[in-house]
Write a protein that binds this DNA or RNA. Structure first.
Lengths: 401, 401
DNA sequence: CTAATTTGTTTGGCCGCCAGACTAACTAAC
DNA sequence: GTTAGTTAGTCTGGCGGCCAAACAAATTAG
């Protein structure tokens, strides 16, 4: 049955068509290369209907016929794949110490992936807008050169982002009430594509949900391991933001009333006792510096330096407390550690898992697995692109025929 | 656009029809009494379509014409209301100290509401099945006498309930791996209606979502204040259970590493430091006894007994920590305190709110309001009925014409 | 070369929504 | 009391999209 997520809206034929277009497009994405007959079989749609829908998608240049078929009995099938070439989606992540930009095509192929150092903590929102706009212009130009139409841009920011794309508070960037979405649109001067802004953890969760090794997992939580710690929550297959869009703010939940002081002024926040700052000796600012310190920590851990191992175990235990909260409250299938947690995962996970299993009421932690992200540092930016792709409504794209 | 929650399923005309039937039914429920023209205006459906859909619903005895109209210019309208009479939904809550059963009609009118003491802590699952079956049989007989068809039964239990209706663990009842749903179905011997089992907090959240003063709020969390504490989480308009259905287990999240020992063996669980047991002098077993103690606490609080006020403030502060976690992670519009918290709310809320506001990163706690439930002790049972009503697919009910 | 097999298109039918015309029933005002 | 105005609900025809089934196409097996 058709179920609308919010207020039930009446349906008509256009909806049926749009739904089925999306179904077929998704089927191609997941099973490519595949034939029309395969699609009909796997979706349950009639062969004739699939033919019509595929023709529509080909008209819109979302799908392409690729050569013929294998050697087997019967008429050879014309295989279909996503047509990556005519479109691109751009994702950008602004963080405390770096900016990342990626562009992907419809099939999720990464067209480019840039990362540059960025003094976020000392940059105003207005300056950041200029920087991001410059990067986006360069990406857009590159896409134009490849004759790709840019479908949209989504920017991830570590902070509270309202539904309208306004950054309410970004503690680690020092921004308040910055209309990033509006200003960026203005700075790009009629960019010809929609601009969205979202929380970085939300976008990273989307990236895992679409591109990660556990893609498609209906319930997953992504934990950013940047200077700040945030959670992106996917439940029942969709990102959940809460009423005002401020969900996932796990970083300032108190884990230890006697813990270290957090930059937010409270004591023992998860971010303070289990953030990357609790691992590194002193808070470095440039990603290069953080990277150097991080490499050093990894080296020491490999060398079984006892002080390092104990620090990492402590952080792992604290992180386990946070993950246990998530597991108890939300019971996700997977919790994914991202950012700087990734290289440290081998030493964090044992303590984390012990804590998790000891603190969850459900047996075996409710089946909750904890893994390190494999998407690299650009997860949030990639997630921005994923969000753009998610918002592609196949029925709305221009027809060429 | 039509959006399916899980894997996208193809749509056809039957789906359009089913969707629109549900839209019209819901419109009648929310705006009753109303005319066909009202429905067309509020849903955007064509007048002709609405007429056809309404005729269908009348055939299925879900909707009834009720007299004519007021005095105003133009042709008088024939008003429509939900036809409560032919159907009933049954909800039951099994808890540590009582069992509640309610039956409601389609419009949510309570047909009956029973509550009886029940020694849950010393009762095996098998005995409970017999007790519940007996109650349900009596309710079903009563409904049969009123010539109502029972649409279904949902039973709420304080514990982990799997997707198949198996009670994995109910700590406060002492049950493990009880196939409550299956056994109950067997005990009822071909009841002629579907039987579901769910967590009590989940059902109570559904009750608030459908029948409470904040009905329709897209993001709300219900906190049970029974012997145990659990959360029911509604996000984006639907109950979210997580991967295995074990979400909402907030009761055993550690709030205070130095806190009192919980019956689960850990220290400082929310349930131990902010459950009803932390308010009452000693854990009483029968609801009558709990009620007497509770009344005494309320009396003392009214009389401004300093020890009582300080106890309630402490519990309120702890509860505030828990609610702050929820607000930070999920950003709901409302958190509803239920069960035994309700009569204590006037003294709990000030401390709770102070803690909440101090611990949430979003300004003004992300717009999160905390209120006491007004649905009474039968919230979970009522929610069971709500769950049955939610699963009513208007297209599936028999046509009479 | 024929049979078997599989793909994808064509045809006709059906169903449900919509727009607009039309009928129905009432109020208001002259 | 008659006429105009207003609102409710039904009827008709058209359209769009899905489906079943027949058919055409392209290949392998024997």
């Amino acid at each position: 049955m058709i179920t609308s997520t919010t207020d039930p809206q009446p349906a008509d034929f256009a909806d049926v068509r749009a739904t089925n277009l999306a179904v077929v497009l998704r089927s191609v994405r997941e099973h490519a290369p595949c034939s029309r007959a395969d699609i009909a079989a796997s979706t349950g749609l009639n062969k004739a209907t699939v033919s019509s829908l595929v023709a529509d998608l080909i008209d819109r240049r979302l799908v392409r016929e690729t050569g013929l078929t294998e050697n087997r009995v019967g008429r050879p099938a014309t295989m279909l794949v996503l047509d990556g070439s005519p479109y691109a989606a751009i994702g950008v992540e602004v963080n405390v110490d770096y900016v990342t930009a990626v562009a992907v095509d419809l099939s999720g192929e990464r067209l480019l992936s840039w990362r540059r150092s960025f003094p976020g903590a000392t940059t105003t929102a207005a300056e950041a807008v200029a920087t991001v706009a410059a990067i986006v212009r360069r990406v857009a130009n590159r896409m134009a050169k490849e004759e790709r139409q840019v479908l949209g841009l989504a920017v991830g920011v570590p902070g509270l982002v309202g539904a309208d794309g306004t950054v309410r508070i970004a503690p680690n960037l020092g921004w308040r009430d910055a209309d990033l979405c509006g200003d960026l649109t203005k700075a790009l001067r009629d960019p010809g594509f929609p601009v969205q802004v979202d929380n970085d953890a939300n976008l990273a969760a989307l990236a895992e949900h679409r591109f990660g090794p556990r893609a498609g997992t209906a319930n997953l939580v992504y934990l950013t391991g940047e200077i700040g710690v945030g959670a992106g929550i996917v439940l029942d297959g969709r990102l959940r933001r809460g009423g005002q869009g401020y969900g996932g703010e796990i970083g300032h939940i108190q884990l230890d009333p006697l813990g270290a002081e957090c930059r937010c002024g409270r004591l023992g926040c998860l971010e303070a006792v289990a953030g990357i700052g609790a691992v590194l000796e002193h808070a470095a600012l440039s990603p290069a510096e953080v990277q150097i310190e991080l490499d050093e920590v990894v080296r020491l851990a490999r060398a079984a330096d006892s002080r390092t191992l104990s620090t990492l175990a402590t952080v792992g235990h604290h992180l386990g407390k946070g993950v246990a909260m998530i597991a108890n409250l939300l019971n996700p299938e997977v919790v994914i550690l991202g950012g700087y947690y990734v290289p440290l995962a081998p030493w964090l996970l044992p303590a984390l898992e012990a804590e998790l299993r000891g603190r969850t009421i459900a047996p075996d932690a409710g089946g909750c697995q904890v893994v390190a992200s494999t998407l690299g540092y650009g997860a949030a930016a990639l997630g921005g692109a994923a969000r753009v792709l998610d918002s592609v409504d196949p029925g709305r794209l221009p027809r060429i025929s």
